[in-house]
């Protein structure tokens, strides 16, 4: 079968969202009337519209005249490294403090690149940690602990 993968992906995403949100809205939110719209009114209308658009795209994709594949390759390395770096920041900022969090986040981030090198990775992380601590904690005095609760006891 000839499939336009881009349209298919978009169509299924829209359709999926319409179904999930539509179900929640129908179950939990009263629809109301045009005069006194309930909390479900607008969302349900939107879900129907989104569902129509999603179905249209999906059908159009399946009947496409020529095959269109997703353009570029996918690589796990950047996705894993960057997501991990951000999650670690969010989870441990209180415990590690700003300095170490920035160091860790920046270092894990730099692992995302295929041209990663230990020396420059550590160097960059140290520079960023010093800069960020200086600017954000001492410069503009954001209420972020420089040293985290794990070290202050």
């Amino acid at each position: 079968m000839i499939v336009n993968q881009k349209d298919l992906g978009a169509g299924l995403s829209f359709l999926g969202m319409a179904i999930v949100y539509g179900r929640v809205a129908l179950r939990e939110l009263p629809f109301g009337s045009a005069l006194a719209m309930g909390p479900g009114y607008f969302p349900i209308v939107l879900c129907m519209l989104l569902g129509v658009i999603g179905s249209f795209l999906t059908i159009r994709a399946l009947c496409a005249a020529q095959r269109i594949s997703l353009s570029s390759r996918f690589s796990w390395r950047p996705v894993t490294a960057i997501c991990l770096a951000v999650i670690i920041f969010g989870t441990f900022i209180r415990e590690l403090g700003l300095f170490l969090s920035v160091f860790g986040t920046a270092f894990i981030c730099s692992l995302a690149s295929r041209q990663f090198a230990w020396k420059s990775g550590v160097y960059l992380a140290v520079v960023l940690a010093i800069l960020c601590t200086g600017i954000f904690a001492y410069g503009v005095r954001l209420p972020l602990p420089v040293i985290g609760t794990w070290f202050t006891g």
Partner: peptide, 26 residues
């Protein structure tokens, strides 16, 4: 290679200090 770790870090600090919640960072 130097730029993007800095951007990610600034993003985290920015979002965390606006909301003070780990959830926003996730």
């Amino acid at each position: 290679n130097w730029l993007f770790p800095a951007i990610v870090t600034f993003c985290c600090i920015g979002v965390y200090s606006v909301s003070s919640s780990a959830f926003s960072v996730y």
